[in-house]
Computed example of a mutant assay.
Amino acid sequence: MSNKTSRIALYLGFFGGGGIERITANLAHGFVKSGIKIDLLHYDRESPHLWRLPSETRIIPLKASTVYQTLPGIVSYLRREPPCALLSASHYMNEISVLAKIISGSQTRLIVAEHNQLSKTTRNATKLKDRLSPLASRLLYPWADGIVAVSDGVAKDLAQTAHLPLDKIQTIYNPVITKEMLANAAEPVDHPWLTEKKCPVILGVGKLEAQKDFPNLIRAFAKIRAMQEARLIILGWGPDRPQLEALIKELNLENDVDLPGYTQNPYAYMANASVFVLSSAWEGLPTVLIEAMALGSPVVSTDCESGPSEILAGGKYGHLVPVGDSNALADAILQVFAGNSKSVDSSWLDQFTLETATQKYLSILGVDPKIKICN
């Protein structure tokens, strides 16, 4: 493959507004700026956030309704026009990508990336395919040319859960900090609580599901609200919204908690909030925590596995509290309100920039942007 023009394929089934999609889009922009051609393989033609990708991206629909039905399409693609490298960015797509490479006999370099803790996914699984994920990873991942984890915690968890050698897994932090993110943060924020600033405003961002543990944040806020005036905004959509609304009503917080839903520009909210709070029960590498920190918002986070402690240097750059402890979460937020926030060394943030991640991914993908050919 030493004479093949540099072209990287990215495989992500549904291109929605989640964290993995934003990270994939950021990487695509980084690759294009490096002179690399990009293909996106996906199976959902109605993906609403394809606009995030560079205009140069070639979209290749796989004409399938589920991830497993994409296998023939990827095999055909790898046989018909094999790229330099294929980067798969989600667990089940990783499994399909490995099978596609084996079946196709392609020499394309395949890199699989894990964004979450496999053990937690398995432990909370209700479907057979989820419970079998560690076995599938143990059997299939050794066939990949490289394995990426988005944090050291995810790498260790994957190694332990799937019985893979830790030295075969490379940690590359997500490309979170971009010029576009900083520009979006400077735009006017569309929420009266943040424009009027009559009292401190707490911000949470994430999918409304069990992993993010927003009930913990709401209960912590109830304790704060009993002591002083404050407000809470939680941005995001998800299946747990009815339960969260019921809890807010139960705690008589309807006038002080807002669930605006999904927003395309959470960065303006982060830049104007009094404190950003991550209340998760578990994570991989919580992108929103890095974003808030980079935008100058004081941060409070649960010390969940994994990511927050790595991001905050063990608590040096933000408050860390035990998972599920609403009293400790409330106390940490009150410390920030009292002026006890922690400043961040700008050099610490360099490891989370698009430029750093792009170079590390190009290296493991075996693509040399200087000569525009595969290594």
Rank of each mutant, 00 (worst) to 15 (best):
F352G: 01
L135K: 00
L295T: 15
H319V: 05
C199N: 13
Q335L: 05
V75P: 04
P200M: 08
S341K: 07
P165K: 02
A210V: 04
A125L: 06
Y92H: 05
S6C: 05
E250Q: 12
E254T: 15
Q170E: 14
G366V: 12
T287E: 08
K129S: 12
I169T: 03
K198Y: 12
G204Q: 06
T5K: 15
E245M: 14
Y262G: 02
L278A: 07
E245Y: 15
L217R: 07
K198A: 14
I218V: 05
P54A: 14
A271H: 14
Q351W: 02
K342V: 00
S274W: 02
D145I: 08
D350A: 14
A125E: 14
W237Q: 15
V98F: 03
E305V: 01
L251Y: 09
L362D: 04
N94Y: 09
D190R: 01
E229C: 01
A85I: 03
T5H: 06
K249G: 12
I102F: 05
A136H: 15
L217E: 15
C374A: 10
A313V: 05
K207D: 11
I74G: 03
P82R: 07
W51I: 04
K129N: 06
R52N: 00
G339Q: 09
Q170R: 11
G153R: 07
P142R: 03
N255T: 14
A149N: 05
P83L: 08
R138Q: 14
P239Y: 14
I38R: 01
S280I: 03
V323Y: 03
P322S: 08
R7G: 08
Q228T: 15
M181G: 00
L251H: 13
S34T: 03
E209M: 07
A183Q: 07
G18Q: 02
D325F: 03
V148H: 04
T287H: 02
R138I: 12
P134W: 13
A159S: 15
S301L: 08
D256S: 15
I60W: 02
A162S: 11
S90T: 11
R52H: 10
G307W: 09
K120G: 12
K168W: 09
L128F: 04
Q351T: 07
E196L: 04
I224H: 10
M270F: 14
Y267C: 04
I248M: 01
V277R: 15
L128N: 09
W51K: 08
S88E: 03
G296M: 12
V277H: 06
D256I: 13
G73C: 08
A338M: 00
L320K: 04
T122L: 02
T66H: 10
L334I: 05
